[in-house]
């Protein structure tokens, strides 16, 4: 069971700002293109301020994701295995035997929480 970390609010705010910038730059691009269409201008590329806004949003997203993400997990399978109990690692569900005391023990018992 992984311990739930408290979510990083700063990271989420940074992500949200990044999203707003991305949205705004997209909207600006749309406006710029419709302006170009209206004046029949031929221009390749976008104005510098939109490009800068876009790159800023990428940077903010990167920073925000790093802040929000949980701690890294070990890449080795052994470290995950080492956390598990012997009951789970040595379990053989397809070889269950019913020749055990369970029926006698639990028959007259009310299970409590």
């Amino acid at each position: 069971m992984a311990v739930q970390q408290s979510p990083s609010y700063i990271g989420r705010v940074v992500c949200f700002i990044g999203f707003l910038l991305l949205f705004h730059s997209g909207y600006s691009t749309f406006e710029h293109l419709s302006y170009l269409k209206a004046i029949d201008g031929h221009e390749s590329g976008l104005p510098l301020d939109i490009v800068i806004e876009l790159l800023a949003s990428v940077a903010l997203f990167g920073l925000g994701i790093v802040l929000v993400a949980d701690d890294f997990k070990e890449i080795l399978m052994e470290t995950e295995m080492a956390k598990q109990s012997i009951e789970s690692l040595d379990a053989r569900p397809s070889f269950y035997s019913f020749n055990h005391r369970g029926r006698a023990v639990f028959r007259n018992v009310t299970l409590r929480n």
């Binding site: 109990s85 789970s88 379990a91 269950y96 299970l111």
Partner: peptide, 12 residues
């Protein structure tokens, strides 16, 4: 997922 045999918990 863990395949642990805990019939009392499962029944409860």
């Amino acid at each position: 997922a863990s395949a642990e045999r805990k019939p009392d918990v499962v029944v409860r």
